[in-house]
Amino acid sequence: MIQLTLKIWRQSTAQAAGKFVTYPLTDLSPDMSFLEMIDHLNQRLILAGEEPVAFDHDCREGICGSCAMYINGRPHGADQGSTTCQLYLRSYKNGDTITIEPWRSNAFPVIKDLMVDRSAFDRIIQAGGYISVNTGNAVDGNSLPIAKAQSDEAFASAMCIGCGACVAACKNSSAMLFVAAKVSHLALLPQGQPERKQRAVKMVMQMDKEGFGSCSNTGSCAAVCPKEISLQTISQLNREYWHQ
């Protein structure tokens, strides 16, 4: 059993001022997941007649991109290549204090406590993050051979889960890695060629419009990305963008 002290950002509504509230927790099992620890705290708060901590989560296996906590100054905590829901308490020492905040970015306004609004990402996809093909138009899947290496590279970019950690880590709140991942995925495939040029421009324009900052190449995004999306996707995006 271990004891931890949590300092959690509590903010009742989007407009309200927030503050840190400290919660000492005892009797935690090292095999508990980080989110199970928050569940545990919430059960206690509910029984005590207090408001539980609001946070987004769903799959709890690192794939849906819902969970989003800024833990001790790093999105998704200290473990490399993992999401908040994939953290376990055995990574912490008995007696540790853990600070938990929401993603901070003008483009991701806080809704409540640790929950933020990431709909800007959906609007960036709307701007061009797709291949325009209606159902029923397709030719046989094998009529278009794609080299394995190229397909694998496209897949590596397509793994982005849209969590927003890249934005939260960036001092400029840039969404470049997210945009670059989608632009690279589609630019690397032959199916993505017809709309290739327009796609990059439109998605970047939408990114700017949403209030994300510009990229100054510090690489903190890729360092925290749970899917380890490569910084090279950003170079790819720049090439796509400036090729106009």
């Binding site: 291949i131 093909v133 397709a138 030719v139 278009l144 394995k148 199916q191």
Partner: peptide, 21 residues
């Protein structure tokens, strides 16, 4: 037809070295 449509959308299915699915 599902596979054909998903390929057209850019779903990066696993491929062989010759480029086939």
């Amino acid at each position: 037809k599902i596979i054909d449509h998903c390929v057209a959308q850019g779903v990066p299915f696993a491929r062989e070295y010759g480029g086939m699915l």
